[in-house]
Design a protein around this nucleic acid. Structure first.
Lengths: 206, 206, 206, 206
DNA sequence: TATGAATGAGTGTTCATTCAT
DNA sequence: TATGAATGAACACTCATTCAT
């Protein structure tokens, strides 16, 4: 079938309680990541993922109610990875240090598995997945908190958070697309963009 | 027959010399735009495009050797539209004015047909299309020229151009995704980001 | 998919205007009939039907939006065949003759392609198809008209029509299942059942 | 693995001697009934049955060698239920009273769990199950015995029994499908059909 | 003996592309 | 040159059944 259209559940079918299941689930998600990385969207199909994971297609569907649910799970995995790192920013003394740490985390996330990160950024935008993908809000909130500390008087921390997220992601994406590998330099430019933006916004309002 | 095969030509099959053909080609491209806008990737198939264009699927293939060629043509159309507007920036007196004009053009491009612009940004990234999509280089060059005028001493105009392009596109994309409609405000923030970035980069180097 | 579940259109996709199409459609429906007859429900799948029809699976789906739509089309064909024959009953002089003709038509329908008729009787009952299958109402009306002529004073022609339809179909089904071939005898027993029922119902009411 | 293969045994794997097993078997069969009733054919699968029964799928296969065996067991249960009630007819004084009792039993059977009864009537007809389903013969024999008492001179009690079974089942099925609930009225019409049929058949022979 | 994770053949359906008319 | 019927590889997903634990 379908190749379908009606809303399908996007959450895992069963919470793997048994260790064997947990392994299987993890291996399927990692296989999805690898297929996406190596074959791109074109080759990202459930049969390929199952094969790469070394499980049967039936097993895949035992744990994920549909292809999209698998994608969502992968996004969640990556998001969690990222968020865990990024949350450390909150422990920094100064707002500036927090922002700098966040930039570092973003760069790390984007350049570790660049292809994967970029492809997932796209998938995240698919309307069918919207609402299941927590990242936006969560990251947004994290960044809002950081901005409030770094720029206590900023008039519009929410808007600024959205803009900075877009800036960071956009630049990191482009850099990885270009094949950049000089992390130091990229981070320097990102700091310029971020602090440049902040120093010129949110002062009065109108 | 297979939907995945050897590299297919991505250029239009015939340069439409007769005006009738030119019309047909244009109507197909516009139909592609509309289908992409209204149905998203999911509904973007050649049969739907042909139907919307009011031509037979056979005719579509007479003018475009494959689906990707159609996508490329659409990207070209949009890019040309954008580039034409953006090139006006070069006529501005000051580098600052040129940059501001460019920002305005980007916002216009992104918010006129937001869905279309965003979808095409994604398509552009597909490896299968890379190399046929002129935009990056062209826009890059345009921006390099502008930066050289606005910041004659900038150490790395090429890198800066790449970054600014990413910043502008990232922020505009995100804004349109959020449904923002206050163009004025968006442009103000973009100026902050762009000039903020420029003022903090390219000074020495190390 | 049902590999699916959501309501799918049950009507043919395109009314075949071109003669070639009409042929294809007819051959697909006949193939469906043959597959159902020879393989039963178990073997009744769209690939088998397409193969038997000598067309590709794609062609099948060009004319029928789904498996159920094909089944419905087959039911319609058989129903129309039957109804055309049965309607002749209305031209008979007496109500008795009309009823007898109707019995004959039913027997003919049921014993011509017995397996097919029985299988379709079952399919007709599937909730997913209900509402698209006209037969019940139409035949019901036909029979009501006949009963009104044969038994003008019958108190409940609608109920009687439903009962008689069930009796006729039930007996004919069972006969064909048993492999009976003596049409004469079956018709005699059907007349006994029908007229026996009528002579003992609908007289007063309570 | 294939879902279509060589003939599979249709009888329960083990005659449950231990009371625990008997309970499990019964609960599986009742679960099958409920799934069939609530989900129809579409939802009637072994996993659903096992879950509803509160046993593992493995256990289900411990007691039933396959899905069909489970279906057969359910049919047997219902048939036995019915037969037990129907057999009381034999204790009636007159043949007429016996027939009337049988009609009552049929109506009761059909209207108690109407959906289930109808679905099983269909399943019974599946060739794969034929031969394992005792009902026809047994009920046939019961009815033959009754007819012989009610119409000692009837020339063809076997044929009549088949016809009457078909009539009763057909009418009761249709009634339950229509949602009729007036049992009294349905029984009256059934008596009309049955006695009407008998009074007009089996006299000479032809 | 019970469990339930795993299997994989099978099925419905789509859609890019071709080619006879 | 235009048409649109036809093609079929590819893909998402199901479910009866097995077997290691």
């Amino acid at each position: 079938m379908s190749q379908q259209s009606q809303p399908k559940p996007l959450r895992p079918r069963k919470t793997p309680s048994q260790p064997r299941s947990a392994e299987t689930v993890a291996s399927i998600i990692e296989a999805a990541a690898q297929v996406l990385e190596t074959q791109g969207f074109e080759g990202f199909n459930t049969n390929a993922v199952a094969q790469r994971a070394g499980v049967s297609i039936g097993s895949l569907y035992q744990y994920f109610p549909g292809k999209d649910a698998l994608t969502v799970a992968l996004i969640h995995r990556e998001t969690a990875r990222f968020y865990q790192d990024a949350a450390i920013a909150l422990t920094k003394r100064s707002g500036k240090a927090a922002l700098e740490y966040l930039i570092g985390a973003s760069v790390r996330q984007q350049l570790q598995r660049p292809m994967l990160a970029r492809l997932l950024d796209v998938e995240e935008g698919r309307p069918a997945l919207r609402g299941e993908v927590a990242k936006p809000e969560t990251m947004q909130n994290l960044l809002v908190a950081i901005i409030k500390r770094a720029r206590p008087r900023h008039a519009n921390p929410e808007v600024a958070a959205g803009d900075l997220l877009a800036i960071i992601r956009g630049m990191a994406d482009a850099a990885s697309e270009r094949g950049e590998s000089d992390i130091e330099d990229l981070e320097r430019r990102l700091r310029a963009a971020v602090f440049g933006y902040l120093s010129r916004t949110g002062i009065s309002k109108g």
